[in-house]
């Protein structure tokens, strides 16, 4: 990896009660990279993301954004520091309009000057967001809601975009839209950490993909491994 690390996770342990959900996890995401994190259900992928954004406390270890520790900070502080999470299940505000959802995305933005320019390319990336601006977000289809959720996270102008299973429950054509958008997002200088169940697509897209089972990272795959289905399956079975 040649890019300067933007997000670093070091020897992270997260417990639910006495049960460790994440064990000695270490990962690095360089500037402008797309890094994948795959693994079976319950492997600790979402917990890792939640620890990064401050939703669950870490037992030990460290999480750094551009070299500065963000461990133990409040979720709102971390959001304002430049990490946006697109949560699992999208979590858009169904009773608010599409525009209001986007305005909420602006809350975490620290420099407000170029918000309009950012909104421009975000709306270009997801035209539905512009088209249904005045609609109640709850009336959008699942795929449209997912696009709104990603747009809302991008409006904040984050350095790092975390996505928790963005393709879950979406029609294949929408999955193409979402995966295609990630490449554009990277080109805009946003670093991406993608948690997914679609292993093969993630491995093919990401610069590096960590395979996580039982709370630990077992293997690192590169796009060259994308067609090596057996290797991916073996990584899943490693638990």
């Amino acid at each position: 990896m040649n890019a300067q690390p933007v997000l670093e996770v070091d020897d992270l342990w997260v417990h639910y009660g006495t049960v460790p959900a994440v064990r000695k996890l270490g990962l690095t995401v360089g500037g402008g990279e797309i890094v994948g994190l795959i693994g079976p259900n319950g492997a600790g992928k979402s917990t890792t993301l939640h620890a990064i954004v401050g939703l669950v406390p870490a037992r030990s270890g460290d999480i750094r954004l551009r070299g500065a520790s963000i461990l133990g900070r409040k979720p709102e502080t971390i959001a304002r520091a430049g990490i946006s999470l697109v949560p699992e299940g999208r979590r858009i505000f169904a009773q608010l309009t599409v525009e209001e959802n986007l305005r909420l995305g602006l809350v975490a933005r620290t420099g407000h000057n170029d918000a309009d320019r950012d909104l421009g390319w975000i709306e270009e990336l997801f035209p539905v967001v512009r088209e249904f601006r005045a609609r109640q977000a709850g009336t959008l289809s699942g795929g449209q809601q997912q696009q709104l959720a990603i747009a809302r996270a991008l409006v904040a102008g984050p350095d790092v975009l975390l996505l928790d299973e963005p393709s879950l429950g979406l029609a294949p054509t929408i999955v193409d839209v979402v995966f295609g958008a990630l490449t554009d997002i990277r080109e805009r200088g946003v670093t991406v950490l993608l948690v997914e169940q679609r292993a093969q697509r993630t491995v093919a897209l990401a610069d590096r993909t960590y395979v996580m089972t039982n709370g630990e990272i077992r293997m690192t795959l590169t796009p060259a491994d994308a067609d090596d289905t057996e290797r991916i399956i073996a990584a899943y079975m490693a638990s």
């Binding site: 939703l55 409040k74 709102e76 169904a94 608010l96």
Partner: peptide
């Protein structure tokens, strides 16, 4: 903005905080 943040927080506080709502 604070009004919108209050409405969002009353709907889903956790997600609101993830968006930077204090």
């Amino acid at each position: 903005s604070i009004g919108l943040q209050m409405r969002a927080a009353s709907m889903d506080f956790r997600t609101a905080r993830l968006l930077g709502v204090k």
